[in-house]
Amino acid sequence: MATMQYDKLLTKVRNLSPEERDVLDSPYTIPNELYAALRSVLHDVGGQPDTPQPYFLKEEEDWEMNAYLTSECLAWRGAWNSEMRRRRENDLGATEYFGLPYYARWITGAAKALVDEKLITVDELSAKIDEIRERLEAKKK
């Protein structure tokens, strides 16, 4: 991420894990029970213990509706389908699945799908991201 210092980014990434968790840092071996828990499909959260939290509505930002529209258009024209989108949200892994805002999960999954399906390449994607960032930042000035 060009906008962040490397060390600052590393610290931030290191601190993403929830405060209470089993420490996992590529253990040499794990028991079957832990493996079962690890491969439990991420989205299957129904019934997990949790405490009451305040429920919010959030003012919708333009990119959120656009992430929805772009994801749906990709499915409409056959680049993926909605069940693939949901599967790809699981495939992001726990940190991103629970770390990203709702539509950020969608659009990150969409980007990954296009790369995996060989519809775009990763270097095309990163070049495009840098090009757009420059364009938008110039516009803001």
């Binding site: 990709l74 409409w76 024209r77 991201i129």
Partner: peptide, 22 residues
């Protein structure tokens, strides 16, 4: 700041349109 999510969405959309995906 410009939102990185806005950038990513635009990147995916522009590439998809350039490639004729929609």
């Amino acid at each position: 700041k410009v939102s990185e999510f806005e950038i990513l969405e635009l990147a995916v959309r522009e590439l998809a349109i350039e490639k004729g995906l929609f």
